[in-house]
Amino acid sequence: MAEESAKMDIQSQGGVKLVTLADQKILDELSISEIGNKLNGLVAESKPPKIVINFANVTNMSSSALGMLITLHKRVREANGDLRLCNIQPSIEEVFKITRLNEVFDMKPSVDEAVDSIES
């Protein structure tokens, strides 16, 4: 069943929550706060949380968004869950590399590979 908001679409694939960010720009603090709250809610309701975030529509990034993802990653890890990021466009991937966050996050080229890597 799909759940939608202006900022994201959430679907269940087996035991995995697939979150597709709807905004091209997840830069501003209000959007980031809303997305972060929603994602933290997913962590709280799933035991253990298995979350894939699809970045296919995201063309801009900010340090605030990176901070939100880091906090989410910690919460997922504390709940013994899994988090994957996928479909990250080259310009956004560069931001992860510059900040070395590509070493922190598990990033996959596609949704299928991300979901499979959690379910297998």
């Binding site: 340090s63 931001v95 900040t99 070395r100 966050l101 922190v104």
Partner: peptide, 14 residues
């Protein structure tokens, strides 16, 4: 690496 803030200046410089 896992601090949630402090990357803005670095990105500007990059």
């Amino acid at each position: 690496l896992e601090r949630p803030c402090g990357r803005g200046i670095m990105l500007i410089r990059a």
